[in-house]
Write a protein that binds this DNA or RNA. Structure first.
Lengths: 396, 396
DNA sequence: GACTCTTTGTCCTGTGACTGGAGAAAGTCG
DNA sequence: CGACTTTCTCCAGTCACAGGACAAAGAGTC
């Protein structure tokens, strides 16, 4: 199949494509209700879109008491590739034009091996998805990386946990390899976009999306648009200082939030507690696996282990203090918690909420939901697909 | 003179009005270079604006080698009223349509006396400016208040330092009294708009404006637009906790930034130091006046008083920690420091910079200027005039 | 089955927005 | 005084768009 070549010729067409993406198949009449255009003008633009092949008219809908309508939908063969590169694993998924996940693979990975090795793996995963018959090719790809990105160029800049990636032209290189348009963004921003598109943040305009995985980051959405900051490092809250002259952090500073709470810090603290004999539960888990992860702490906590619960509560308190500051500053309408440690579930959430509701002003917290993301690991890949579709579904 | 009755009929006219406001008088040809319109269309819109009386053509500019151009400018009789209500004083100014301050009055005030008493005073000040011949009437007024505002309605909500104002319909009441359109906003947001219009932030798109006066607040500008948050309390950083279980704050919580550094806290600490005999300089000032203010600390510091310098440094360090967090989170392109305590000058700035540059990631601080505002007390009133002119110079 | 009513989609014409060229007006410069 | 520039105006042609008329295709009613 020939890949998507055309782009919307004007803002009307872009609008229509996004409506079809977000609302599924629609008749011309239904589309007309959602855009501020006359039926005639709308028909013209729909016809032009049909000519380009971006949308198709297939079949007739059931009558609602009158003439049956044509189903207008995005071309069913369109495929987007969503890639979410984490510090220790990578998610690759294929979606259709409506951003529904058709296939999804997760594999372990060490991002420090550098872009060449990582992309080899990612391309192999993409090829696997293609081979399974889910896609004959990709019309676009969105890539998430765990660090700041100069967004317009799609190039990571000074990423602390992936030093070999600094300045690597991710967008250009992958665009060449995949033979389709590519957009690159911070993984946290993609999670925010994913939850906004298909998750808990569907109706939110100004919200924060805190991702606690190997590190901690925060996606910022202002007026429905991701805010990336002047140099692309906005939301980098992992290195906010929570303890003057505190624990040494990998970034070189002392007392960073990430040094106290994150997947990595939690695993380290749990191992220490196990070795020091403060928790039989954790010691048993350590015995079995040789090392511990945040998931092990979740298991121990679920079994009622007091030490594990304490670790979670303490980390949640620290993180909650930072979030409380951000809530005072940013006054969001919603805070979404996501990332690997969401397995810690209600214990974590309770600690976060306590801190935020206690420390921020009532006006800012009065009607502020703090909730877990509902998409889990698919948030990132859906966000990635959304990123590239937003790009492709806008006037050239 | 009849007041401004017309409003721009479309986006083109609004654009032209703002160009004339920000760039001063212009010929049709110069305007044509700045908007994406043909000369013919431009001429039509300019003619329509001339008909409404919003702009006038007065005189011919010097020739630049050809036919002399007509000077198109905003109607010279247009007058905006800018009001900046602080906790302990109020600024009222008149500007022309280009937002140049024609007259400016400052008076002490206690905002806790409530809206009725305050507006009586403000209206008297406005009348005084009118009586001095600067204005025959006002075409619009912008009002800044020291607390959160539900922006669309122009109503303060749950303002901690001015409880009597909660829910008072400021916009409606003043619009009635003044007989012109009124817009209301937080005083910190107005300062940010002022510095953006005519001060250090002229070319900044994403920046923070930290105002340290009786309290501490922060104006947030995203993409050139003020961000107000979900309930209008964005930027309320005075009650971020900087010390767990720390000093009691007026808001009811403990350890808030404002409890450690602000005009009020600084005055209190200085008085304490004077009474405890830790500073002869401050003791002498206290002797003379019976009480101390932030300005007294500035005087003592300028005279080399070690205790005063320490107070400033310590407060600057605390505030710098918070700003460092915000810089990591928001990644601004500029941080402006303003408000009453800017008299503390370089000592304060040095403390702030040290903290921010040490604690935030290099990517976020690499090219980040942290500077004092250059407009001083006029920032607020210029911002207020800008607020209402933005409103009036937009399509109805 | 004839009739009316509803819904959907197409066609056509009139209007207003806009562009770009021609040219007039008003100046400078050699 | 002519050549050239810059500014501004006028005009005709093009394009976007709205809205009405109408055709197509169905449901419901008697």
């Amino acid at each position: 199949m020939r890949r998507m070549t055309a782009r919307p010729a004007n803002a009307h067409q872009a609008r229509l494509l996004r409506l079809l993406r977000d609302g599924g198949p629609n008749s011309r009449a239904q589309l007309g209700d959602q855009v501020d255009l006359s039926r005639s003008k709308l028909a013209v633009e729909v016809d032009r879109l049909l000519e380009t092949g971006l949308v198709v008219a297939d079949g007739l809908a059931a009558s609602r008491g009158g003439r049956r309508s044509h189903n207008i939908r995005l071309a069913p063969g369109l495929r987007f590739l969503g890639v979410d590169i984490g510090a220790t694993s990578v998610d690759v998924a294929v979606t259709n034009a409506e951003l529904e996940v058709l296939g999804h693979i997760n594999q372990p990975l060490d991002v420090r091996e550098g872009p060449v090795a990582v992309f080899e793996q990612v391309l192999a995963m993409a090829a696997k998805l293609k081979a399974s018959g889910l896609a004959e090719g990709f019309d676009g790809a969105g890539i998430g990386v765990p660090g700041p990105v100069r967004f317009p160029e799609g190039v990571p800049v000074a990423p602390p946990i992936m030093p070999g990636w600094d300045g690597f032209p991710v967008r250009e290189a992958l665009s060449q390899e995949l033979g389709c348009p590519v957009m690159v963004d911070n993984d946290v921003n993609l999670m925010a976009m994913g939850e906004q598109h298909a998750g808990v943040a569907r109706s939110a305009r100004d919200f924060l999306c805190v991702k606690i995985g190997t590190g901690i980051g925060c996606g910022i959405v202002v007026g429905g648009e991701v805010y990336r900051g002047t140099t692309g490092s906005a939301g980098d809250i992992g290195h906010i200082q929570v303890e003057p002259d505190g624990r040494q952090c990998a970034c070189g500073n002392k007392g960073c939030l990430e040094a106290y709470f994150s997947g990595a810090a939690l695993a380290r603290d749990a191992e220490e507690a196990a070795r020091e004999g403060r928790s039989d539960e954790l010691a048993a888990l350590l015995e079995g696996a040789g090392k511990l992860s945040a998931a092990d702490v979740a298991v121990a906590a679920a079994a009622g282990d007091a030490t594990a619960l304490d670790l979670i509560r303490e980390g949640g308190n620290r993180t909650g203090q930072v979030i409380a500051s951000l809530v005072s500053f940013f006054n969001p309408g919603l805070v979404v918690i996501g990332g690997g440690v969401t397995g810690l579930g209600h214990t974590l959430l309770a600690a976060l909420r306590t801190q935020v509701y206690r420390q921020s002003l009532p006006l800012a917290t009065g009607n502020l939901p703090i909730v877990l993301g509902e998409l889990g690991p698919t948030a990132g890949v859906i966000g990635a697909a959304r990123l590239i579709s937003d790009h492709l579904f806008s006037p050239a």
